[in-house]
Amino acid sequence: MGVKLEVFRMVLYLSFPVAMFWISNQAEYFEEYVIKRKREIYPPDDDHQRKELEDFKERMRKKHEERLLRAAQQ
């Protein structure tokens, strides 16, 4: 019974992690839990936020160019 028991334990020890890996990597589970959760945390941008971000970038770019121009003139 000793060898059979050891073979059973080895199969159990190897099959459990493999089964968990296979189950957790199914596309349905990934879509259901990970993608939906990501969309809850980071919702899609709306037009107002995007416009504010673009305006901010433009202001920062102009400020940086003015600094460079002043530094070049000195």
Rank of each mutant, 00 (worst) to 15 (best):
V3D: 15
R67C: 10
G2V: 01
D45L: 12
R9H: 07
Y29W: 15
M1S: 15
F30M: 08
R70G: 04
A71M: 12
H64T: 11
G2H: 05
Q26W: 06
P44G: 09
R70I: 02
F21T: 15
S15A: 05
E54I: 14
A72K: 15
V7G: 09
L68Y: 02
P43N: 01
Y13T: 09
E54N: 04
V3S: 15
F21M: 14
E40V: 02
R70S: 09
P44R: 03
F21R: 02
L12H: 11
M20D: 03
A19M: 08
V11G: 01
L12P: 02
R70N: 08
D47A: 12
E52P: 08
G2D: 14
A71N: 09
V34I: 14
E58R: 10
R39Y: 09
E32T: 13
R37E: 11
R9V: 11
Q73N: 10
N25D: 07
F21E: 10
I23K: 09
Q49F: 01
E58W: 01
K4C: 06
F30Q: 12
E58P: 05
K36W: 07
F56V: 02
G2S: 10
I35Q: 12
R59C: 06
K36I: 00
Q26S: 05
Q26V: 04
R59T: 02
P44K: 04
R59V: 08
V3Q: 15
L53F: 07
A72H: 07
M60P: 03
Y29S: 13
Q26D: 09
R37C: 01
F56C: 10
A19T: 10
K4D: 11
R61K: 06
K38S: 05
S24R: 13
L14F: 05
E40L: 08
F21G: 13
F8M: 15
I35R: 07
I35F: 03
K36G: 11
A71C: 03
E58L: 04
L5M: 04
F30A: 07
E66Y: 00
Q73I: 06
Q49T: 05
V34P: 04
H48A: 15
I41A: 04
Q74G: 08
H48P: 12
D45W: 01
R70E: 14
Y13N: 12
N25R: 13
S15P: 05
Q26R: 11
E28N: 02
K51G: 00
K63M: 11
E52Q: 13
N25Y: 02
A19I: 11
P17R: 06
M1V: 05
W22Y: 10
Y42E: 14
